[in-house]
Simulated assay, not measured.
Amino acid sequence: MSELCAIGLMSGTSMDGIDLAVLRTDGENAVERGPSFFVPYEAAFRRRIEAGLEDAKRIDKRDERPGDLAALERNITLRHAEAVATFRAKLRDDARWGRSDLIGFHGQTVLHRPHVGLTVQLGDGPLLAGKTGLPVVYDMRANDMVHGGQGAPLVPAYHAALARALPAVASFPVVFVNIGGISNITFVPEKGDPVAFDTGPGNALIDRWVQREGGVPFDAGGAIASEGGVSRPVVERYLEKSFFKLPGPKSLDRNDFTLAEAEDLALADGARTLAAVSAEAILKSVKHLPQSPKLWIVCGGGRKNPHIVGDLREGAARLGAEVMLAEDAGLDGDATEAEAWAYLAVRALKGLPLTFPATTGCREAVSGGVIARADGLPGRSA
């Protein structure tokens, strides 16, 4: 099987919308990045997803959909189908990207309990395949858990391929930092498998804080935080939590950290302090890596918060490392995760590993995913 053209779909823990990206790859070392696209969720739908997180707390088995979750799953899937149709229409006249072979579909995570082997992403693969007319690879986390893994993070296989192809990477090891609702890192050595794990809260606590205290969905450009200061006692209370003492592999649910430690802060001080928590949690991860990295490449929405990035730069400099934004490395920091899902879909189709013992804790490198056929006939596990 030669190179395939795949569309990757990602709706992350920030719950702000759907990222789409197209990628041509052999699922191994060949990676050609194409255009990307974003479809935002309106505030009312985001609130519906947040309510779904509460319904999801009642799930004991992966196929359960209590409360509004069944209807929400269908609605999320149909929104993804509409997003794909719009994206493909934009690409229709592009000779290189106008024809796609398959879709990699992440879905919306509403529950992640790695300690009991339970992860739930809302997204109906067969429905999406039927609506788009393309094969869909979905549910890519479950097989990792069957083999003893945490089910996250899955992006490291793509990060490793990128690191070894980027002109900006002059020396190893390099670390990719993805700051979404939750932050995670991928340590890429010059040779061998990547090492990866979640590092702590990314934007999720900041978003919740400014929404609750200021009535806005997120701190755009760190504007609110720019008027505040860092409360060191609050930062230390967060960083003393047991999660940070655990070695990787490890992963988080969006609700594993709360605003309890920040309760007495003013709006701006809380936003600035929680940005410091995000950055220092990432820096604290170095003690769990095989080597101190020489280069940090920052992706995800959190790279747009100058306070997170500034704190990260200062801390990395003390460790003798450079911090580079995704764009400075020749990447699109908003599209990296969607690109990864396209890449992983091709790997899944070929039966190549999606996860490794050093990224999720699985017993052995394993593939995963379920393939839904566009003709509605039963697919297969990848």
Rank of each mutant, 00 (worst) to 15 (best):
V298R: 08
M15P: 00
L312H: 00
A266Y: 07
M15K: 03
R232Y: 02
P293C: 11
K241Y: 00
N75A: 15
R347T: 04
R272I: 06
D311M: 13
D19T: 00
L162Q: 11
A165D: 10
L205A: 04
D256F: 03
A335V: 03
R79G: 03
D253N: 10
T25K: 04
L111P: 11
L265C: 11
F187I: 03
A345G: 02
Q121W: 14
W296T: 05
R58K: 13
P40C: 03
L118E: 05
S100M: 00
E261H: 12
N143A: 08
E314A: 12
S14T: 12
A317D: 11
T109L: 00
R363Q: 13
E28F: 06
R113M: 11
P114R: 07
L78F: 06
A44Q: 04
V116S: 09
G302V: 12
S367D: 05
M324F: 03
V366I: 14
G34D: 07
P353T: 02
S278R: 07
A163E: 03
S242D: 13
D68K: 10
E280Q: 15
P167V: 02
E50M: 12
G202P: 04
D311Y: 13
P126R: 10
V136H: 11
V277Q: 11
L274K: 12
A170R: 15
G148E: 01
L265P: 12
A372F: 05
C362V: 13
G376R: 05
R318D: 14
R113H: 14
L118H: 07
P35R: 08
A275R: 02
P290Y: 05
K304A: 15
D55V: 13
R96W: 01
I297R: 01
I182V: 13
K287N: 08
L246I: 12
A276V: 05
V277A: 11
I297A: 01
G333H: 09
L312E: 12
E236D: 15
E314W: 00
S11G: 14
T77F: 05
K57N: 04
Q150W: 00
Y41T: 10
Q291T: 09
A279F: 11
A161W: 07
L252T: 05
L154R: 08
G330C: 09
H288N: 11
L162F: 06
L331E: 14
G117Q: 07
G181T: 05
G310P: 02
T199C: 14
F257R: 07
K191Y: 10
I49H: 06
L162N: 03
G148F: 01
F105V: 05
H80Q: 10
H147E: 11
A329H: 10
G301A: 07
R74K: 13
A316V: 08
S226A: 15
S11E: 01
L246Q: 15
E337G: 05
G222D: 09
A340G: 14
E213C: 08
P247S: 08
A342C: 09
P306G: 06
H288A: 14
L91V: 11
S226Q: 03
V177D: 04
V110I: 14
M1V: 06
Y138I: 07
I179C: 01
L102K: 01
A30R: 15
A338R: 02
I185E: 02
I76D: 02
F45T: 06
P135N: 10
